[in-house]
Nucleic acid binder design. Structure first.
Lengths: 228, 228
DNA sequence: CAAAAACCTGACCAAATAGACAGAAAAATC
DNA sequence: GATTTTTCTGTCTATTTGGTCAGGTTTTTG
């Protein structure tokens, strides 16, 4: 009862049962099922607006069974958030001052756009959480995320100091710009698609978007976009 | 009972009383008060998550009195949305092919950033609505907003055709980029401020942000940012 | 095939919810 | 100051909410 809970406190489902018997393929499947359903409903209605019943319906299980795996709504919500937070820092991560700015930024932008395409709901849920004041992610932002930004900003600054990027670029603002411009395609999907009169994104659009943003931002930084 | 309701259908409070007596300073004040309170609560908890009671509390009136002015929750929500939609199209509006791209874009960017600063909640509420699939704004986006974008895109395209802007700029994507990068500072305020370790925006930061984005985007378009 | 553990769920509860409504209070008009 | 109209609110109802729990069913293990 006091096992791993101590480390990842809230980010986990109910502690697994006593453990003598098989801890559970069933368990894993159900948890995955619930998390997936919860993600969809939370995105659509927000934390407060989401009912456990709605999640249970979407997951095709009884409401009480959701509570069997997650002891409270906020427990489940935090689990959903935690489940997708790992997507954020996965790349752009082992960058050094010696790397080529153009290559790195180009790749970063493309990966972020690809992420918007592959995990739109993750991006949306994160956005909603922040817009509402980040009640569940304040700590994460203040510690991990801030640190991440500082580290990357330092590398970018060194590129500028080395004369490899335009003087006017503020590294932190640049990171914000890349975040905002790429996530926009996930978060504002509805708006973007409606205005462009498209039913859904296609690979070709994603490539165009990536090309555009990469061109635009790299040029803005005084860099020459890599050939492709 | 069938008066102006026909035009702006849902965007209005309850029809004013019969009208023989003074239609109401009290009325106007209360409606403004409710709209303001509703805006705050809707942003914080989303449409479904917001209770009329919470709005009434924030407005310091009885719950039933909210229903006296707005017949339903969604009626009130739509009124709040409508009340802030006018902010969007207010500027960048009488632009022509003959204007100077750099001047126009610079001004557009600055005005959008200023708007993020002056009306952060409006931006946030709009963002939440879109993220959740724009259930109340689909029509507006498909008609007015799409038309607005097309008109502006045409002007930008003509600048490109005249050789006054870089070839690689897709006008619609450019508009998206300006929207996303500027609104980010309102919508993700919590994240931005936390990472920058600031308590709140100050005019100086807003200027820096504007300068950065203007420099970046204009340079990206192959334009020379106007002197200031 | 038992017994133990994991999994499941219908029934229940207290609290909160959107909204209706009758009638009280306040204001505006004459 | 009387009356008409607007404004206000306490009370009520229906439904939904998060969460509990006792007891059922299924699976795992030996």
């Amino acid at each position: 009862m006091v096992q791993k809970q101590d480390l990842e406190t809230d980010f986990d489902p109910n502690e697994t049962p006593t453990g003598k018997y098989k801890a559970g393929k069933i368990r894993d499947e159900n948890i995955a099922n619930i998390l997936q359903a919860a993600e969809e409903v939370f995105v659509q209605y927000g934390f407060k607006g989401t009912s456990i019943q709605a999640i249970a319906d979407k997951a095709n299980i009884a409401k009480a069974n959701v509570h069997y795996y997650f002891k409270s709504k906020s427990n489940l919500y935090v689990a959903v958030l935690g489940n997708l937070m790992h997507l954020w820092n996965d790349f752009f991560d082992q960058v050094t001052e010696d790397d080529d700015p153009a290559t790195v930024l180009d790749e970063f932008i493309r990966k972020k756009v690809a992420l918007s395409y592959s995990h739109p709901r993750a991006s949306k849920l994160f956005a909603m959480e922040i817009i509402q004041g980040a009640p569940h992610l304040k700590d994460y932002i203040r510690t991990d995320m801030r640190q991440w930004v500082r580290t990357k900003a330092k590398v970018i600054q060194s590129w500028i100091d080395q004369g490899r990027m335009a003087q006017h670029v503020d590294p932190v603002q640049l990171i914000f710009l890349i975040w905002s411009s790429t996530q926009h395609y996930a978060d504002f999907e509805e708006q973007v698609l409606t205005i462009m009169n498209c039913a859904e994104y296609e690979q070709e659009m994603i490539d165009n978007i990536s090309n555009f943003l990469s061109q635009m931002i790299l040029t803005g930084c005084g860099l020459t976009p890599p050939q492709r």
